[in-house]
Design a protein around this nucleic acid. Structure first.
Lengths: 367, 367
DNA sequence: CCCTCCGAAGAAAACGATTTATAGAACTTC
DNA sequence: GAAGTTCTATAAATCGTTTTCTTCGGAGGG
């Protein structure tokens, strides 16, 4: 679809330049207009804009005056073209819907970026590799200074970024292939804590609903689940494990399956909060009580977890800090660091609430 | 803080041009490199890129070949500078944290934008007028094709956008001052439905926790609350109304205050889901039962509302459609529509669940 | 008094694309 | 075969900045 150009400024190469127009149309003033109004050259205006030292104070005043009068706003497009640099970052995230986690992450990146004089463009990929690729290309074509991204899958191709020598940082998810600066949460440790806690509570048949195993988060959290079981002398019972899609519908379906078996689980570890919603729904459908019939621990600690009865135990992630650390790594690259790739690992913390503490015998009897 | 430039490409004006380097550094190839490789002029390459009709098929093939070989990616910066147009929109939202509402809105805008060949940059203002202003300026300086924004307050100044003649649409919140294309949810109707429903249930002292009255949403939802009361022959009791900040903490505090009075409310209408979380927390602290002691209806219908006991009644907003309609309005401007400002109003729907249905006498007696 | 040096301001060349005017080549048509 | 007519492809101008390099005027030194 082609946009029809309203060609108010079109003119033949040989005719009078468009800067002939005066006064009106304030925001479209260019550096040439400013230079003319101040009676100086564009070079001088440019120097004032970037406050270079060697510019006379009275000239500077005149230029500033002209800038104000014309409402002049330098074109970042032209600047970016000339300097081959742009004080903007792109932050490519896989799904803004994924609750407070990405929101806090964004906030963390933004705070650091702003502090360092960068602005942030967000791009939402919906976990779609094609959109992810498109946004990477867009960011490069727009000449961003750097980018932070949460790769949608293990097969995400970073080569465009590498070829373009544009610095980037992976946040929340690592890629085994390319060694790049990465910030992750210690998913294994988080899952390990959660499952160990359930084991300590005496639960025997602990189920796990995890996300796609191609994602770091899905795979690592499952790994932590397995590690806790094995260390405690149990073995992983595949019939208690379901791989879903990190969404509500997936959690619902997985839990229904788990509960329909002949020997259903007495506890559940679910690796994100959306799937937790679905799973809790399924538990409710089945008329089971938490934690007496089945205990539950979730990954992600959404604000509503305390509203449930019983309140939901969960592994809280330092999302804001993931953002902050990602931004810091990116910043260090932009400031010239060109050494080996670094990985920052942050620890999640288990928050124990009612959904996972075993019910005392006396109460249990009442059931 | 100044980034040190690694000046690999710097050269004196008189010396050999940088395009002398061959082969390596694939992604930094320019249109000149492609032209050279294909043995044509840059004009021809440009025509191939924008598939203009008048270009010989074999030349076209040679050019495409060269593009592929060099891994050439046209610079959107240069293109945007030259054409004074950019197929990118900015979507400035006030707070990504505000649950699924903005997330769905973003998705709606994005779907339409992509369909029309536009990409989307998101900007998050945290309801901060300064950040909002800065992002508006950034979007203009980056020469975006258009923007969708959710103004942070009534005093948001749109004049930069108007002066720059960059088309824009207001989403979710309208501004009384400037008449601009706007898409809003019928907040009055939503609140009216919710409160009428409570009145029909026989509740007498219906409290309201709303957001800042400078925001359309805060003010209109409060207006709907008042309208329902007045139409039913009641009058608005100011002591039952609290203005908070649309966040959890605000809801918590407001509800604590409401419950501490001598004659507490028997029902609550709360105008967004974050404040609902806080309010529910306060109700729980006070040891009150829902709905027998106090009934609750919330604006926004988050996915977890069915998990509560009793499940939470709520006014569901067509967030995705707000996004879609906003994008459509913007698109029509970009396609040349230059008529009067339009306002699209979408209706929310009340979802009645257990938190607001009066308890039968028999059960009530048991309390 | 002349030469050198220094600093501030300007002229002009980039950056990488699009687009207009123009130059050729190929084809009619007489 | 020459003139007129299409077509294609190229040259060159242009978008709005930054950044050299150059220039110009004045200050300082011998």
């Amino acid at each position: 679809m082609q946009v029809h150009q309203v060609s108010g400024t079109a003119h033949r190469p040989g005719t009078t330049p468009r800067t002939a127009r005066e006064g009106s149309d304030p925001s479209k003033a260019t550096i040439v207009d400013v230079a003319r109004a101040a009676g100086v050259s564009t070079a001088t205006v440019s120097r004032v804009l970037n406050d270079h030292p060697k510019v006379g104070s009275q000239l500077k005043a005149r230029v500033l005056q002209a800038i104000k009068e014309l409402g002049y706003r330098p074109s970042r497009v032209a600047r970016s073209l000339r300097t081959r640099r742009n004080r903007v970052w792109a932050l490519i995230i896989s799904d803004i819907r994924t609750g407070p986690f990405f929101a806090d992450l964004v906030r963390g990146v933004e705070d650091v970026a702003h502090g360092a004089g960068y602005s942030l463009f967000l791009c939402n990929t919906d976990e779609d590799p094609a959109k992810e690729r498109a946004y990477m290309e867009l960011a490069l074509a727009e000449n961003v200074g750097g980018l932070v991204l949460t790769p949608s899958s293990e097969r995400t191709d970073l080569s465009p970024l590498i070829n373009a020598r544009t610095p980037f940082v992976l946040a929340d998810r690592s890629l085994p292939t390319a060694h790049a600066d990465t910030v992750i949460v210690d998913n294994v440790a988080g899952a390990y804590q959660a499952v160990s806690h359930l084991l300590a509570g005496g639960f025997q048949r602990i189920a796990c609903i995890t996300g796609p195993l191609q994602t770091t988060t899905g795979e690592r959290r499952y790994a932590g689940y397995g590690k806790a079981l094995v260390e405690a002398g149990h073995e992983v019972d595949e019939s208690l494990v379901r791989v879903a899609d990190f969404r509500e519908a997936g959690g619902l379906q997985a839990m229904r399956q788990l509960l329909s078996g002949s020997d259903p689980p007495d506890a559940l570890f679910v690796t994100n909060h959306l799937m937790a919603i679905g799973a809790l729904q399924a538990i409710d459908e089945a008329g089971l009580a938490i934690p007496s019939d089945i205990a539950v621990v979730s990954f992600d600690d959404p604000p509503w977890s305390t509203l449930l009865r019983p309140p939901l135990s969960a592994v809280a992630q330092p999302a804001y800090d993931v953002g902050v650390e990602s931004a810091r790594l990116l910043l260090s690259r932009l400031e010239g660091y060109s050494g080996v790739a670094r990985t920052v690992t942050l620890s999640p913390t288990l928050v124990v609430r009612g959904s996972s503490v075993p019910v005392p015998r006396a109460t249990l009897g009442r059931r």
